[in-house]
């Protein structure tokens, strides 16, 4: 079945220069494997489309049931250069939570 990420995960985002950092965290650590399988760097890139001019890199933190994404060239120059209202990418984490992922019902128990 397809479910939106916000059903199983929360997120916080911030900036590292012109890169947006998104931490994606499973509410229940048993659901980490769904995040690891479904939320690939390529899917995050596709989700944000033309907002991300550079690469998306993913890091895994299984000990926290979490993934960390760096979305390069995603903040309009970053910091003080950016003309975006969300110059520091504070809302990008929430934006990721609308992504739909595939999960078997047995995995969601």
């Amino acid at each position: 079945m397809r479910i939106p990420l916000h059903k199983i995960a929360h997120a916080r985002s911030g900036d590292k220069g012109d890169a947006s950092n998104i931490g994606l965290i499973a509410y229940d650590e048993r659901h980490y494997k769904i995040l690891e399988r479904e939320v690939t760097a390529a899917r995050v890139q596709e989700h944000f489309g033309n907002m991300v001019k550079g690469d998306v890199v993913r890091y895994e933190l299984p000990n926290l049931g979490a993934l960390n994404f760096l979305l390069y060239e995603a903040l309009g120059g970053g910091g003080t250069l950016s003309l975006r209202v969300d110059a520091q990418g504070k809302t990008m984490g929430a934006g990721l939570l609308s992504m739909e992922v595939e999960a078997a019902e047995s995995e969601l128990q």
């Binding site: 929360h10 916080r12 911030g14 900036d15 590292k16 931490g23 965290i25 509410y27 890091y59 960390n68």
Partner: peptide, 16 residues
Amino acid sequence: LDTVKEQLLYELGDPR
């Protein structure tokens, strides 16, 4: 755990 994890991941690059 939720509030601490969110902050741990905040402005994080390569976690290792």
